[in-house]
């Protein structure tokens, strides 16, 4: 059964076994405005929890996307390169950034639950 958790840097991560999918939250996508470019990690790259893994850009801003959990990049969402607007249209679905394998459940357990993140965003 998969579960989704969140970071205070506005990434979401869904864990399924030791595989994870990472993206940015609806809140982040709205704050950023129209996304014009996404730089994704190479397949096979090993990233640590909290490490810079991708970049997302709007016309006037650029933000790093940090990997909420450690693992090896198994896939990047190449569709975003041609259609960056997907990040705005469906940030927590088809607008995912990359997938990881070999993810430790320990990293995951430290992250915010959906409710905790919702509280966190309310406080901003």
């Amino acid at each position: 059964m998969s579960e989704t958790r969140f970071t205070d840097q506005h990434e979401w991560v869904t864990l399924d076994g030791d595989n994870a999918t990472v993206g940015i939250t609806k809140y982040a996508a709205e704050a950023l405005g129209d996304v014009v470019f996404v730089e994704l990690p190479q397949k096979g790259r090993k990233v640590g929890a909290g490490a810079e893994a991708a970049v997302v850009e709007s016309v006037k801003a650029a933000s790093e996307v940090y990997s909420p959990v450690g693992g090896e990049v198994s896939e990047a969402n190449a569709a975003l390169e041609a259609a960056p607007a997907t990040v705005n249209d469906d940030p927590e679905g088809s607008g995912w950034f990359f997938k990881l394998k070999g993810v430790s459940a320990g990293d995951f357990a430290k992250l915010m639950t959906k409710d905790a993140y919702a509280e966190f965003v309310k406080g901003l």
């Binding site: 470019f37 850009e57 709007s58 016309v59 006037k60 801003a61 650029a62």
Partner: peptide, 12 residues
């Protein structure tokens, strides 16, 4: 493509 530039990217 100004996100490459100093006034947005600063040290990056």
């Amino acid at each position: 493509l100004s996100t490459r530039e100093q006034h947005i990217r600063r040290e990056k």
